[in-house]
Amino acid sequence: MDSKTIKTWAWVHKWSSLVCTAFMLLLCLTGLPLIFHHEIGHLLGTEVEAPKMPADTPRVSL
């Protein structure tokens, strides 16, 4: 291989990896809120939670 071929492949490799990196970053940034929506809602105080029941509360039969 001559130096022009190596430079061409290095350019193709660099720019194709930058495009793939941008795509993967977009997937990670949009996917994380979907995975951790319960934790984010709890942190922001928007998650509805059941109240704590006393220990002597009788259980209802299903």
Rank of each mutant, 00 (worst) to 15 (best):
K4P: 02
T5C: 12
T5K: 11
T5N: 11
T5W: 02
I6P: 00
I6T: 11
I6Y: 00
K7Q: 15
K7F: 09
T8A: 06
T8Y: 05
W9V: 15
W9Y: 14
W9S: 10
A10V: 09
A10P: 01
W11S: 11
W11K: 07
V12L: 10
K14T: 04
K14I: 06
K14P: 00
W15I: 02
W15D: 00
W15Y: 10
W15N: 03
W15R: 09
S16F: 14
S16L: 02
S16V: 02
S17T: 11
L18D: 04
L18I: 07
L18Q: 03
V19Y: 09
V19I: 03
C20T: 05
C20Y: 06
T21F: 12
T21S: 12
A22N: 05
A22C: 05
F23L: 14
F23S: 04
M24C: 15
M24P: 12
L27Y: 02
C28S: 11
C28Q: 11
C28Y: 12
C28T: 08
L29D: 00
L29A: 03
L29Q: 03
T30F: 08
G31I: 06
L32T: 04
L32K: 03
L32N: 00
L32G: 00
P33K: 01
P33L: 00
P33I: 00
P33D: 02
P33M: 06
P33H: 06
L34H: 06
L34T: 03
L34F: 04
I35Q: 05
I35L: 07
I35N: 07
I35Y: 09
F36H: 01
F36Y: 04
F36R: 06
F36G: 03
H37C: 13
H37S: 11
H38A: 07
H38F: 04
H38P: 11
H38I: 08
E39C: 07
E39Q: 14
E39W: 00
I40W: 00
G41E: 10
G41Q: 11
G41D: 10
H42W: 12
H42R: 11
L43C: 04
L43S: 01
L43P: 04
L44W: 09
L44R: 08
E47F: 14
E47L: 13
E47I: 05
E47T: 13
V48S: 12
V48E: 13
A50M: 06
A50K: 12
A50P: 08
A50G: 04
A50I: 10
P51D: 01
P51R: 03
P51E: 15
P51F: 10
K52M: 14
M53L: 13
M53P: 01
M53I: 12
P54Y: 10
A55N: 09
A55F: 10
D56V: 08
T57A: 14
T57R: 12
T57K: 14
T57P: 04
P58V: 05
P58M: 02
R59K: 14
V60P: 14
V60W: 05
V60N: 05
V60T: 06
S61K: 10
L62I: 07
